[in-house]
Design a protein around this nucleic acid. Structure first.
Lengths: 210, 210
DNA sequence: TAATAAATATGACTGCGGTCATATATGACT
DNA sequence: AGTCATATATGACCGCAGTCATATTTATTA
């Protein structure tokens, strides 16, 4: 969608235009149905019938039903990506910067919990069997973390530790907390939760002896 | 299996005996087929045919195909549970204790990577939609961590932090690392990896200023 | 032992995700 | 415009997980 708006529809062959229309129609119908009845209870048949296309056509656009969720995620990431780019250029302590990035992500999930649920599940599911896409969500997340940590080391905000491992730990904590939050009934603030946990990562949990 | 061995087959009604036999036959056949062809490529039809039962019977024993993996996990946990109970009574620093527990878990996964892959995936998948079973794997993991951290605080090995959050972080890191390891091609040591990361959790990543 | 109740087994059937050979629409070329 | 090449659309079809009405086996009661 975003892309369509940015580029407009000019200068596209008839084929290209039709393809976009179809893809968008699938996206919009699916989006509506998922919110109405949830992901599992929405069938590809329904989506295609409401979109006025044949079932097979769906699979010309998305290799599987879950891939549709990947597309949802892309759309979302595009929006939030800019906020994060902005954030990481600020001149504030590394810990705050990491917190802010994670809180931005958290807030984007807090906007639509139900959809976030579906999408995160898809992330996990897909992150699974495929040789991890270097352009995928996880990889982008990790590269941002590594960047921030590296910078932190240079500034003296972060000790000279294994950046890779530290990034993995932050990633782990973010996603784990996200999952717990998505599954919880009570409506606590994900942003605050993640903030506390980042503090813990920086300060360590060891006693005076360590 | 373990249960069968412990309790023996004595004192069981004919029905009870047959049920156990059937469940065990399903378990053994499935176990073999999963190793031979993987989880997805093994169909319930195959399992039941080789086990000499009707397809419907399978679903009298396991509500879904993936539930079978939950059973696998239970079997495994039973074995490792004792090792861990032993470990947590030792009188060594908390950090070492936590490391050892995680390394035990890691090693149990290292024994059969392929099966571990399937099982962890199931864990994630199921941990998803159900209201989290208080007796499930994740809960037991968390309760062990909380116990160890609590003890650590009392001994002065752990600072007076939010135990719950710390346990969540350790859980997050363990599972995340496990997933990365399961997905990796290269054969690095999961045990060493997790050990390094636990150090990081204890010592923190913050610079001198924090 | 016969009759009745309750648990378990069975396999035809359903629903859905995904495939594929075939049909149709589009673009390029003359 | 007419012809060919290629991209896209189509829906009958397939495989498999999971259901359910019915049949069979085991337990209970008299």
């Amino acid at each position: 969608m975003t892309l369509v708006i940015i580029l407009g529809d000019v200068d596209l062959s008839l084929r290209e235009k039709k393809k976009r229309e179809t893809k968008n129609r699938i996206f919009e119908v699916a989006s509506r149905l998922f919110k109405e009845k949830g992901f599992e209870k929405t069938t590809v048949d329904e989506i295609t019938k409401e979109a006025g296309i044949a079932k097979g056509t769906f699979f010309n656009y998305f290799p599987t039903k879950v891939a549709l969720l990947g597309y949802f995620a892309e759309q979302k990431d595009e929006l939030i990506g800019n906020l994060i780019k902005e954030e990481i250029t600020k001149d504030i302590p590394t810990k705050e910067k990491i917190k802010n990035v994670l809180i931005h992500l958290a807030k984007s999930n807090e906007e639509d919990k139900e959809l976030a649920k579906i999408m995160v599940f898809e992330y996990i599911k897909n992150a699974w069997k495929r040789p991890s896409h270097p352009t995928g969500r996880g990889a982008r997340f990790a590269s941002v973390m590594i960047h921030l940590l590296q910078e932190g080391v240079e500034k003296g905000d972060v000790r000279g530790i294994d950046i890779q491992d530290a990034a993995e730990n932050l990633t782990a904590i973010y996603f784990h907390s996200l999952i717990l939050w998505l599954r919880s009934e009570t409506d606590y603030s994900f942003s605050e939760d993640i903030s506390k946990k980042v503090d813990m990562v920086f300060d360590g949990i060891g006693g005076s002896k360590s």
